[in-house]
Design a binder for these strands. Structure first.
Lengths: 361, 361
DNA sequence: TATTAGCAATCCCCCCGTATGAGTGCTAAA
DNA sequence: TTTAGCACTCATACGGGGGGATTGCTAATA
């Protein structure tokens, strides 16, 4: 990930030319030549001079000529320098921000917020948006309900963090009656409502040891059922949400060909690689940008990922961002990702504060 | 949808040649000429004779020459005749059927079954699979739970049809205490468990009129909350599930171009058109096939949809199928769709029988 | 009448050569 | 250090000429 060697000193002029070249290339996708650059820039230099500079930049690995008589194109390294220091982030216009703000109403459920954010990213950037589902290290049990199915199967309904509902089917060691299950649920709801789920199992076992004399059927049932309750469900939900995959089709022009695109789609359905990339952003502070080959995945060549963590009450709980061609309008995309992350953080935190309101009452 | 005019009488030989031509074209995608056909078929005819027949078929609208010196290609009408009567359905080999059967275990939840079926269709056909979510005209309430949130919002958890859990947030007219909600839930669970949800509201109102003297707070709360309970949620879940969209990329070869593909993707995200097509299959008996332009949607040109309804306990509750290029191996696809529909029906029906088992106990 | 062989005509596709134009690198002058 | 000039490279577009495949037609054949 880190660059092979430090950026060699690059004088102001070279940097400026690189910036203009990258911007131009991002604009219209054609290799940029010295003549164009001479007209584009304010420096009033002749194409010949610019050619010298460009030759330098190419030598240092920032640029690349597709062929002898074409203009030049930024390399991954060139993009890296560009996004790291050269680019001027355009703040998003207020109307768009307002629009986003309106869509991300905190009275949606978590699922709704996440998919709305994903659609938002996709719509505004015209790229592919994706949002990791928020994972909290600290999940509070609010309410639990057991319903007997046939044989030794039990439907468990968990209400977590005030509003999230999860349900799964567990297989118990023996058949429990509806009354037993009801009692077990009542016990859990009375004693453990508000507790952290991750510690619930150990707490239960402790309680069982302390009141060894009271170790009756009720407790047994409770422990049996509750300990199965938090096993990972088989068909666990997807870990992130995507929108706008169709925008990836823009990649299909020119030499990149349809095959790479197919690989990319395959990656998405497999989703392991993507998740790994997203995970790397979890610990980072602000916006993270992965440029093409840097990611290490061959399929991601020609692609970039712009991502930002989002948080609930100050704690980072997830990552969102967009995937698109390396040649994407970073100035816009960065601020869009940034704003969306902040808005989602706000929306989720407001939901969280329901909890406080509730306890105050 | 119906054909413009009846198929004019087509002698055996013409039909056979059309069949062979379509099969061949499906195999390798190249226009088929008279010489190839002469070798392919068993009829021992000279290319010249076959040319006469082909000219006839073309005149009747079954075939089409891309240009003067190319072979011939089936038209939508040609495909129609082919799938309606000519094609010989290949039964699926047992190992594949077994494999499908193993995947569609009835102990998955409905969501799981549907997405597994979708993946199955996509994997086995290498096309895009889609499954409409089962909609039952008859939804039984098993259990309901109310949890107060802040202000006048209530989290409602519904258990329907024994295993399906739905949850949503409703806004009540006034703030209810936890105790009130608990009572209301108890009342509903005791009196209306096992009832049809669609009739629940009217039944409630009736009950309220009968016991007018008992119209206490409890009843008021119950009616207030319960009547809001079944309003359609805003972010309603998607109505069908797709898998294998990446297989659509095969369409992107040659003249069809990337633009049509993009339109197609847009269609999928909008999903209205698709749903309309699927709906048409709901009332049909067996396998339905839509061929390209027949569907009436321009974007669906060059595409076909092979669909079959699936059922629970004999009643049709949904449709599944695959979408792919008009030039697809119908013989295989048809039997795959057929088998998948039957297997899904079986799996869903077995789940349904949990209900009976439960009541027996 | 149905089938077949023969044949000219058509048209796509591939290849090749050429012209064009954009852009480069080099060199020498300012 | 910058610039102008120039030869060179190479992708792209254009056009013409085979080669190949297939057709439709006509006339002969069974």
């Amino acid at each position: 990930m880190s660059l092979q060697n430090n950026h060699p000193p690059l004088n102001e002029r070279s940097q400026h030319l690189l910036k203009v070249l990258v911007e131009r290339y991002i604009r219209d996708g054609q290799p940029v030549g010295s003549r164009t650059l001479a007209e584009e820039t304010v420096l009033n230099l002749s194409p010949a001079t610019i050619r010298h500079v460009l030759a330098d930049l190419e030598e240092h690995g920032y640029l690349l000529s597709p062929h002898t008589s074409a203009g030049r194109v930024p390399t991954a390294r060139g993009y890296r320098l560009f996004v790291d220091g050269l680019l001027t982030v355009k703040p998003l216009d207020d109307s768009t921000v307002k629009q986003c703000q309106q869509q991300l109403k905190p009275d949606l459920n978590v699922q709704g917020l996440v998919s709305t954010a994903s659609n938002l990213l996709s719509d505004v950037t015209r790229l592919t948006g994706l949002v990791m589902l928020p994972r909290r290290d600290h999940v509070t049990l609010r309410h639990v309900e057991f319903l007997p199915l046939n044989d030794n199967r039990v439907l468990v309904i968990l209400v977590l963090n005030e509003q999230e509902v999860q349900n799964r089917i567990i297989y118990t060691d023996r058949v429990y009656s509806a009354a037993e299950l009801q009692q077990a649920a009542n016990y859990l709801n009375e004693v453990y409502a508000g507790c952290d789920v991750s510690q619930l199992r150990t707490q239960l076992l402790q309680a069982m040891q302390n009141d060894r004399e009271h170790l009756n059927n009720l407790m047994q049932a409770t422990v049996d059922v509750a300990s199965k309750m938090f096993d990972k469900p088989k068909n666990s939900a997807p870990d992130y949400v995507m929108a706008g995959q169709e925008n990836l089709l823009d990649l299909a022009d020119g030499a990149t060909g349809i095959n790479r695109l197919r690989q990319l789609f395959a990656t998405f359905t497999q989703k392991r690689d993507i998740l790994y990339l997203l995970d790397q952003c979890l610990n980072a502070e602000g916006i993270q940008i992965f440029i093409g080959e840097e990611a290490g995945y061959e399929v991601m060549d020609e692609c970039s990922l712009v991502a930002a963590p989002y948080s609930v009450e100050g704690k980072v709980v997830g990552v969102l961002g967009v995937i698109g061609p390396t040649r994407m309008p970073y100035e816009r995309v960065i601020s869009i990702v940034d704003v969306t992350a902040k808005l989602l953080s706000v929306a989720l935190s407001q939901k969280g504060s329901d909890l406080d309101l509730l306890h105050d009452k």
